[in-house]
Design a protein around this nucleic acid. Structure first.
Lengths: 214, 214
DNA sequence: CGTTAATTTGACCAAATGGTCAGGAATTAG
DNA sequence: CTAATTCCTGACCATTTGGTCAAATTAACG
């Protein structure tokens, strides 16, 4: 056979690269989340990935390049959430799905959310173009959908823009400020049950708040 | 006369110190907000304050000391907002006042909010004791007030804890993410009128959302 | 096997960083 | 006025930083 017999071989050049890049990206995400771009150091990232710094620079020549890759991954997750807010006639269904998705992301990928927050706080030196194109277009289309719901009398006449901000802030808060939440929860992270309550609460208050509940 | 005649003199040792410290603290706040503690440099702060770095270190011997002072100031502003949520029988009145106050702070002191956000993201190395004492006590007392409103049938049975998180996140979002909001607003900051709408929207959705509106 | 290509890493470097210090300038006290 | 005190700052230093490189190791393939 020309194909290698042991596809599940522990080591293979392709696999090595794939795994190392993944490990480094994960370490980088958590360090960038905690210290921002300037505050993060490549040695810290290398240490957290359990490799020598020189090896990190073999895979990612510069700190910039590594950061860009991390941010790209995060933006893809964001896109995934964005998709869940589809053009649906029922505001309850659409918003419930969207808020739920965003809450799930905050729980499963808190580091990514923090990197994003840091980027915005720094005035988006890397993702500014995303904000002005993809995010802006997406936002405008959803504003239109929400406005349609209002025109159809399905929800109260709230300002769609600020409703979106409220959804973003509430859901992302559980990622960005999870340390504060944990501290107020007696030093232990929210349990799955507690997180479910938080999720239900957010959905309930927002849907009731815009008059979607009949 | 033993007292100096020219009290309004442009230069006096006491005045000089007071003004320089204020200038440095303001510059430090904006640099720490943008880059976090690690990412900020004393030269950047000195430059933004228009003084030589050595002069900065004359007033604040270490970066740590300067940061601590900045955080202390921010915490005092937070306390000021906290006070506006008093033990009031009317949830509409109390929550409206509190949300309004928090929105005003976000507008007038966005840098402080960002420094706070950075601190929490870094797991509160400096303010952890505040979180565990002052913030925790305050939160518990407000949870009790909200619970009382629920028991009295004045608002829907929401979970008080998560309602607070929603208020914090929504209001602080306008400070921490103001760059994103500005970008989505066509590159210009929210006008006073727009900010008023954002404020009204937040109050309206939250109060309606918990069933406080009759 | 042997050759080639990919991976690993200790040692190294120039630039940036937090912080120091000596000495000069300005203000105040007597 | 003089002396004491506070303020100011250019020059300096040890450490940390992002990044390089040559040499060694490992896998790929005929």
């Amino acid at each position: 056979m020309s194909k290698p017999e042991k596809v599940t071989k522990t080591t293979s050049k392709a696999k090595i690269r794939q795994e190392n890049e993944k490990t480094i990206l994960k370490a980088a995400e958590s360090v960038f989340a905690e210290y921002g771009f300037r505050g993060a150091t490549t040695s810290m990232i290398a240490e957290r990935a359990n490799i020598p710094k020189a090896n990190l620079h073999y895979y990612f020549p510069t700190k910039q390049a590594l950061y860009r890759q991390v941010v790209d991954n995060i933006f893809n997750i964001w896109l995934q959430a964005a998709d869940s807010f589809d053009d649906c006639d029922d505001p309850i269904e659409a918003l419930t799905r969207y808020i739920e998705k965003k809450m799930d992301i905050s729980r499963e990928n808190p580091m990514g959310s923090k990197v994003w927050a840091n980027e915005i706080i720094r005035r988006a030196p890397v993702i500014q173009d995303y904000l002005e194109t993809t995010l802006k277009d997406w936002t405008e289309s959803r504003v239109a959908i929400i406005q349609r719901w209002i025109d159809q009398g399905k929800i109260n006449p709230v300002d769609p823009q600020y409703l979106l901000y409220m959804i973003w802030s509430t859901t992302q808060h559980y990622a960005d400020f999870n340390h504060q939440i944990e501290t107020l929860n007696g030093g232990t992270p929210l349990s799955d049950a507690q997180y479910q309550i938080a999720k239900d609460n957010a959905i309930e208050i927002i849907l009731t708040g815009i008059g979607a509940r009949k």
